[in-house]
């Protein structure tokens, strides 16, 4: 009895270690093909500096001004600076001064980042509540306050990535991605 079970164990051991599937890989690949998911809107929220990922839509500074007063000014201040949340407007050119202010307009290198961030995270009490048109309008308003775009500008998926931010060349990559 004992001998028989021992022999069985040896056989089981051999099957386990010598079977081709064991030799190939020590685990079972369990990922599911996700081509459709990968193309669906809810998995394509990130927006690149070249505009990839921007949804269709458009908005103006005038529309943005109204939205800003209603939905943003409470935390960011009526002029987008000097309230409980991060400053957004003004202080362009202050970065080398004794009191630098890192606002969207003084510091951010890309306007696409503004769209990306407002849509996913603001207003902070209701993320993903703004339509694409509203986000374009808010971007137009914030950027127009420091003359980065004209107050008449219409921002959309074509024009937003073309905006050159004042501090576009202000960053030095410490980690190098040269492989």
């Amino acid at each position: 009895m004992y001998m028989a079970s021992k022999a069985l164990m040896v056989v089981a051991w051999l099957i386990f270690f010598l079977s081709p599937s064991y030799a190939e890989s020590e685990f079972q690949a369990l990922g599911k093909a996700a081509n459709e998911l990968s193309h669906s809107a809810q998995w394509n929220i990130s927006i690149s500096p070249n505009g990839e990922g921007l949804p269709p839509g458009q908005g103006t500074a005038a529309q943005g001004a109204k939205l800003f007063a209603l939905q943003c000014a409470g935390c960011h201040g009526p002029d987008g600076i000097g309230a409980s949340a991060e400053p957004l407007m003004g202080e362009v050119g202050s970065l080398t001064s004794d009191y630098p202010e890192k606002t969207v307009n003084s510091y951010w290198p890309y306007a696409t980042t503004l769209f990306d961030y407002i849509r996913r995270a603001m207003p902070i009490n209701a993320p993903f509540s703004l339509s694409a048109d509203e986000v374009y309008a808010l971007c137009a308003y914030i950027l127009s306050k420091d003359g980065i775009v004209s107050s008449e500008a219409v921002l959309d998926e074509q024009s937003l990535p073309k905006i050159k931010m004042p501090n576009r060349d202000g960053f030095i990559a410490v980690h190098s991605d040269n492989r």
């Binding site: 927006i47 970065l95 890192k102 696409t112 202000g170 960053f171 030095i172 980690h175």
Partner: peptide, 24 residues
């Protein structure tokens, strides 16, 4: 991606006005 948390935040403004980025 140049997301907010690798440009506006988590970058280090130096006295010359340039900011260190990707200081992981």
């Amino acid at each position: 991606l140049m997301s907010r948390d690798e440009t506006a935040q988590y970058t280090e403004l130096q006295p010359d006005g340039k900011a260190r980025q990707f200081t992981f």
